[in-house]
């Protein structure tokens, strides 16, 4: 239980309300962002940190306004660069819990470079990517995750860009914690967010989020009753890859570097394991939905590697122990001479 010491010295338990700021939330009514905001505000009290230790960093876009609504430290920065700001913050103060809130345009288009480099460095930040497959704040252009043929204001006869797959990208970028959840599943989201927050190093969570105005229903087959049972594959550590309704259970067989959908009672159904440091299995999982299979939801990959800020601290500490110097020593280093 997180407690925060108030001025009277009494430890009080923090609640969801403690993380709500006094700002009016200005997302469109019915936006999937509301449930993600609620999910985050519910999870933080469980993490055992006082409010002042949290920093939420946004870039530009609907999702990036998120920091204004959190009663924590918040920095609404510039388009695509939030991971770079977050890196500077985390390096200077590794004790902070630093969160980047981003969207598919912010993270994958204008900010693609910063996203992949934060991941490969394994800097200890949590990146939540709200993926709604459309540009919302600029009023409805196609995004880097829009499917080919998406008709929007900027693609009236259908987009011809092939989409990026965020999970596959994160695997390629050496991310050490990679997960996917959905805006409509509070319980699942809470579990994933907590795991992400507790992970040392970069955690990356793709959240399938509905844009009710410009791309309503983009994820309906994974969120609506009657559809999601057939189309969502929940990833559970140590459990076989099975999904489907009671009367039509299916499983995933991995053979010859390919996944294959078979009946759930077939022999050799793959068993999920998160600690796939190599990444080949996780990548294969990330392609199941791309290739027309079910949408895997859960943790794709979760392994340990020393985070950037910890290694930097180690280098600084070692240097400080090894060579104590004053500014005067520094200025006198190298060749000097006396002039009389």
């Amino acid at each position: 239980m997180a407690t925060e010491t108030k001025t009277n010295g009494v430890g009080l338990k923090l609640s969801r309300k403690d993380f709500q700021s006094d700002q009016t939330v200005r997302w469109c009514p019915g936006c999937g962002d509301y449930s993600i905001l609620a999910g985050v505000q519910k999870v933080l009290p469980e993490l055992g940190l006082p409010r002042e230790k949290y920093v939420f960093v946004g870039g530009i876009g609907c999702a990036a306004r998120f920091p204004y609504y959190m009663n924590t430290y918040g920095f609404h920065t510039i388009h695509g660069r939030a991971p770079a700001f977050a890196t500077g913050i985390k390096v200077v103060n590794p004790e902070l819990s630093v969160w980047v809130i981003t969207g598919d345009g912010d993270a994958l288009s204008i900010g693609g470079n910063h996203l992949i480099h934060a991941m490969r460095r394994n800097i200890g930040i949590n990146i939540l990517l709200f993926n709604n497959r459309v540009y919302g704040l600029t009023k409805g252009q196609y995004s880097p995750t829009s499917q080919v043929g998406t008709k929007t204001k900027s693609s009236p006869v259908g987009s011809i860009d092939y989409p990026l797959h965020p999970i596959s990208l994160a695997i390629g970028a050496e991310c050490t914690f990679i997960a996917r959840t959905v805006d409509r599943d509070q319980k699942h989201m809470a579990k994933i967010l907590e795991m992400a927050a507790r992970h040392e190093g970069t955690s990356f969570v793709e959240i399938l989020q509905n844009c009710i105005v410009f791309n309503d229903g983009a994820w309906h087959q994974y969120t609506e009753k009657g559809l999601k049972e057939q189309n969502v594959l929940y990833l559970e550590e140590g459990q076989p890859l099975v999904y489907g309704s009671e009367d039509d259970r299916r499983g995933i067989l991995i053979n010859d570097f390919k996944s294959e959908i078979v009946s759930a009672d077939s022999p050799g159904i793959a068993v999920h394991r998160e600690d796939d440091e190599d990444g080949a299995y996780a990548h294969l999982l990330s392609r199941i939905e791309v290739n027309g299979g079910p949408m895997p939801i859960g943790i794709f990959r979760n392994f340990q590697r020393p985070p950037y800020e910890a290694m930097l601290e180690d280098q600084v500490t070692a240097a400080q122990l090894q060579k104590k110097m004053s500014v005067d020593d520094l200025l006198h280093s190298g060749d000097t001479w006396e002039h009389k």
Partner: peptide
């Protein structure tokens, strides 16, 4: 911090100043 590009270099420095 050898950043991935010039924008990350300045952004990280601003983040660092923000953090003290």
């Amino acid at each position: 911090f050898q950043a991935e590009d010039e924008i990350a270099a300045v952004s990280s420095a601003i983040g660092a100043s923000y953090a003290g």
